Simulated assay, not measured.
Amino acid sequence: MQNKKVLLFLPKAFETMEFSAFIDVLGWARVDYKHAILVDTCGFTDKVISTFNVPVLVDKTIGEINVDDYDALAIPGGFGEFGYYEEAYHERFLKLIGEFDAEGKIIASVCSGAFPVAKSGVLKNRKATTYHLKDGYYQNKLKEFGVDVVNEPVVVDANIITSYCPETAPRVAFELLKMLTSEEEMNVIKTAMGF
């Protein structure tokens, strides 16, 4: 079985629950079901502080990343109030997203993680979603990037997965797993995890 590699990018102020869904789902696949799916965590700095001030030590920093080494990019959302967009909208990160898309690689984002994907330009005229509550405020903001916003929990448009709230994080992680393996394999792990 060929190794697959996922780059899990953590901008400052990412949400820990949205991050951990990817770690757990892909971890179960690797450890209990012998899928060769490796995950590298990455940030702008060696230690990234999440939305609720939990520090996470990452495997790599953005300057060390070569897109050719990865099959997918995963992006948890985060809170603007804690500075999420300072790094999520950084030119280097937006360029990285564009490089993943140019090679047709999977980009999986949760909730506000759709915003850097949209700002990079790769969601223009494509279907996507983001946080749906607060009278659709954030979905309307996403439309400003030329996105065809769909008010559904998880939206897949070719290689890009977006979702609309923290509750969807495991769904996005399972969708990513399905794209990396198969629907059958994904369902085995989903059942094993009690979903």
Rank of each mutant, 00 (worst) to 15 (best):
S109P: 01
L96I: 11
E144L: 09
I62K: 07
V154Q: 04
E152N: 13
L94Y: 04
I107V: 14
N140D: 13
T191P: 00
D32V: 06
K47E: 15
K47S: 13
D148P: 06
Y84F: 14
A13M: 07
D68S: 14
W28D: 05
A173I: 11
R30P: 00
I49K: 13
E81C: 04
G194E: 10
K127N: 08
Y33P: 03
G63I: 03
K47Q: 12
I106R: 00
F195E: 15
Y137I: 06
F19A: 08
D68W: 01
A118K: 08
H35Y: 12
V67A: 08
V58Y: 07
E152M: 05
F44C: 02
D24L: 04
L96A: 05
A173N: 02
K143G: 02
D148W: 06
S120D: 10
T129D: 00
L57V: 15
R126N: 09
R171W: 14
F22H: 00
V147K: 00
R92W: 09
G78Y: 02
L38H: 11
A102K: 15
P166I: 10
M1T: 11
C42N: 03
W28V: 13
D32F: 12
N125A: 14
V25W: 00
A88H: 03
M1R: 10
L133K: 13
I97R: 01
E64M: 12
D148K: 12
K127S: 11
K141N: 11
D71S: 10
I160N: 02
R30A: 12
D68T: 09
S20I: 09
G121S: 11
F195L: 13
A102N: 11
